[in-house]
Computed example of a mutant assay.
Amino acid sequence: MSTLDVAKKDFLDVRRAKIVWFVGALYVLFMLLLIYAGQTGSQDPNILYSLWNLTAVGAMFIPLIALVTAYLAIAGERESGGIKYLLSIPNARRDVVLGKFITRTGVVSASIVVAFLVSAVLTLLWYPETRIDVLGGMMALTVLYALTYVAVAIGISAATASRSRAMGGSIAFFFVTSVLNVLGPLQLVIDYVANDLAGLEISTNQIAFVQSLVSPTAAYVNSTGLVFPDGFNTIPEELPWFLQGETMVVVMLGWLVVPLALGIWQFERADLG
Rank of each mutant, 00 (worst) to 15 (best):
G81D: 03
E268C: 08
L125C: 10
G273C: 05
L183H: 11
M167H: 02
L32Y: 08
Y71E: 00
T40P: 10
G41A: 14
A140V: 14
A7R: 03
G81Q: 06
L226W: 14
I207H: 13
T148D: 04
L117G: 09
Y220D: 10
L183I: 15
G99K: 08
K8D: 11
F228D: 13
A208F: 09
L64R: 03
T103M: 05
V179P: 01
P185Y: 15
Y49V: 13
V6A: 05
T69W: 02
P236T: 06
Y71I: 01
V14Y: 03
A218V: 02
E201S: 05
P90V: 08
A115F: 04
S164I: 00
Y49H: 15
L141I: 15
D13F: 05
Y220A: 10
F175E: 05
V107F: 09
F232W: 15
S88T: 07
E79L: 00
L4K: 11
A198H: 10
L213A: 09
L51C: 04
A146V: 08
V258H: 02
V113D: 06
V96Q: 00
V118H: 02
I102N: 09
V251S: 08
M1A: 12
Q206H: 03
A270E: 10
Y127A: 11
S178A: 15
L180M: 12
Q43V: 12
D44P: 06
F242H: 15
R131C: 06
Q244H: 11
L125D: 12
T105K: 01
S164Q: 04
S111A: 14
V249I: 15
Q244E: 15
